[in-house]
């Protein structure tokens, strides 16, 4: 198993009470196993706990309850230098690529820094960039000089250069147009075919998740409400919220168009 989660939960203290509450339950305690090489889609609406789970697994957020075991090691108790080698093995790519890079550093500096930190050779970068259809010259540019799609692939290259065992992708397709989404999904598919990396795709784009993942976790208001194979979730959803999510996916052809009566938000 890559990940073993035991009663993992997260509560966030609010700076000011909201509706009499002083804390927000971002993720209700959950117990879960993720096998090595599995591609898992994590879906749900904003505030459902998807990103919180991703950040907990990447150790960017500390859990308030439970344990995280990664490749047999309990990582939620590790700090500082003890955690560093594990950070290399779990990489996360975020939704807004422009916010992922220091705007005052060239991309070369941003991409080489983690390699230096982990004593890895920079030679692995050029073939990786080629694979992601990024010209090596782009490394000498600053983030604002690249398009959104190029920035997103650079962020992916930075994560992949560390050869992680687990790659967490948080809404990486949200800012991309359909052609770019298709290209990115194809790149990830090829990557998985070559190397058994565990992939967690956090998204509210169910078609992207279904195209890439073997298993889907559905979150709603901090709860894991459904966990099943992609086929089972897409064809026989058990939870009403999963059904609502699937019903909300726009038609793929005008002949499948539905005129839905909207309910209140």
């Amino acid at each position: 198993m890559t990940f073993e989660l035991k009663d993992l939960g997260c509560r966030i203290k609010l700076a000011r009470p909201v509706g009499g509450r002083r804390e927000l339950i971002a993720l209700q305690p959950l117990t879960l196993s993720i096998a090595h090489g599995e591609a898992i889609g994590i879906v749900g609406e904003s505030g459902s706990g998807k990103t919180t789970l991703g950040r907990l697994l990447a150790r960017l957020l500390a859990p308030t309850s439970g344990q995280i075991h990664f490749c047999g090691q309990q990582i939620d108790i590790l700090r500082g230098s003890a955690l560093r080698p594990w950070r290399r093995r779990i990489q996360m790519v975020f939704q807004d690529p422009s916010a992922s890079f220091n705007p005052r550093h060239s991309l070369a500096r941003s991409l080489l820094e983690p390699l230096q930190l982990h004593n890895l050779s920079p030679d692995r970068l050029p073939p990786l960039l080629q694979e992601l259809e990024l010209a090596t010259e782009l490394l000498y540019r600053y983030p604002h000089q690249l398009s959104g799609g190029q920035q997103q692939r650079m962020a992916l290259a930075r994560a992949l250069a560390l050869e992680p065992d687990c790659l967490i992708l948080d809404e990486v397709t949200a800012a991309l147009d359909p052609t770019r989404v298709a290209q990115l999904l194809e790149t990830l598919r090829q990557l998985r075919a070559r190397r058994p990396v565990t992939l967690l795709l956090i998204s509210h784009d169910l078609s992207a998740v279904a195209a890439l993942c073997d298993r889907i976790l559905v979150f709603h208001q901090g709860h894991l409400v459904e966990d099943g194979s992609t086929q089972q979730i897409m064809q026989q959803p058990q939870h009403p919220y999963t059904q609502l999510l699937l019903d909300s996916v726009p038609a793929q052809h005008p002949s499948q168009r539905r005129h839905k009566r909207p309910s209140s938000i």
Binding site: E45, S46, D205, L245, S248, H259, K260, P262, S263
Partner: peptide
């Protein structure tokens, strides 16, 4: 917007 809210807004635009 989320997929569920998107569906509601598309229905509203129809109306």
């Amino acid at each position: 917007l989320d997929v569920t809210v998107q569906a509601q807004l598309l229905a509203l635009l129809h109306q």
